[in-house]
Computed example of a mutant assay.
Amino acid sequence: MAEYTYTVEKVCPVCGEKTHVTKMKARLITLSTDEDFCVHYKDVNPYLYRVWLCEHCGFAADEKHFDPAALSARDKGKAKELLEGRTINLPYTEERTTEEAIRAYKLGLYFAEKLGWPLQKQAGYRMGMAWVYRDTEEHEKEKECLRRAAELYEKSVMTEHYPINGMSDNMAMYIAGAAYYRIGDFEKATQMLSRIMSDQEIRKSDAKLFERAQNLWMDLREKKAEAEKEN
């Protein structure tokens, strides 16, 4: 794994202690990309390391939010309250197991929910968990994470102001549609994708996303036709 990862020391934005995190080296070989933007790499799964974890206090977040400059005083105080009186022993390992990665994601989700971070952020953590399970072929766990992610993205689009963390509302709708498609919920996938397909402005403003939605729409029609034949 040293070929793909390296360890760096970071200051935890909550407790202020120095902790270790794993970062990926740049030379990763891409094999393929799924409908929901899950990228498959040769010999390594970087989604295992997406959520950083303080080995001292247990605070967890992705790289963007695991930063003293990015965490507000309010969030830091709230996180300290959540951790008060708890002993979380999380020894650092440069090479994570699936179980360690999922634990990090679950802690990241816990803080995202308790600190009131956007549903879009919470959905992203759910997608990351799904991609970890996809790599280990734990299909039922993957499907559950995809469903939860899709529901969060859908709710986010209806209630939150985009762009969020660089993501547009159209992208969030597309990912929700792709997630529903992968779990076989073709009705919900159709609802999400049709909102993109019926908006001609997207064709102009984000041609690549429109084309992706169009291709997935065609795949969806074929899957629905197959399902109807079986019934």
Rank of each mutant, 00 (worst) to 15 (best):
N45P: 05
N45T: 13
P46W: 06
P46Y: 01
P46H: 05
Y47W: 03
L48S: 08
L48W: 11
Y49Q: 00
Y49A: 01
V51E: 09
W52Q: 15
W52T: 09
L53C: 06
L53W: 00
C54A: 08
C54H: 07
C54P: 13
E55A: 06
E55W: 03
E55H: 02
H56G: 04
H56I: 14
C57F: 05
C57G: 03
C57Y: 03
G58A: 07
G58L: 09
F59I: 10
F59S: 05
F59P: 04
A61R: 01
A61N: 08
A61D: 12
A61E: 11
D62F: 10
D62S: 08
D62A: 14
K64F: 15
K64E: 15
H65D: 07
H65Y: 14
F66I: 09
D67G: 01
P68N: 03
P68Q: 06
A69N: 08
S72C: 13
R74M: 08
R74G: 08
R74W: 07
R74I: 07
R74Y: 08
D75S: 14
G77Y: 04
K78R: 12
A79R: 06
A79S: 13
E81V: 14
E81Y: 04
L82T: 05
L83Q: 03
L83M: 08
E84C: 04
E84L: 07
E84Y: 10
E84H: 11
G85L: 11
G85D: 04
T87C: 01
T87M: 04
N89W: 00
N89G: 05
P91D: 04
Y92C: 02
T93A: 09
T93S: 06
E94C: 08
E94D: 12
E95K: 01
R96Y: 03
T97R: 01
E99F: 05
E99S: 14
A101V: 06
I102R: 00
I102D: 00
I102F: 00
R103Y: 15
R103M: 13
K106L: 13
K106H: 13
K106D: 14
L107P: 08
G108M: 06
G108A: 11
L109C: 02
L109R: 14
Y110M: 04
Y110K: 00
Y110V: 01
Y110F: 14
A112L: 10
A112I: 07
A112Y: 10
E113F: 12
K114R: 09
K114T: 01
L115T: 08
G116P: 05
W117G: 04
W117E: 15
P118Y: 02
P118G: 10
L119M: 14
K121P: 00
K121V: 13
Q122G: 09
A123H: 03
R126S: 09
R126L: 13
R126G: 02
G128V: 00
G128C: 12
G128T: 04
M129L: 07
A130S: 13
A130G: 02
W131E: 01
W131L: 09
W131A: 05
V132P: 00
V132N: 00
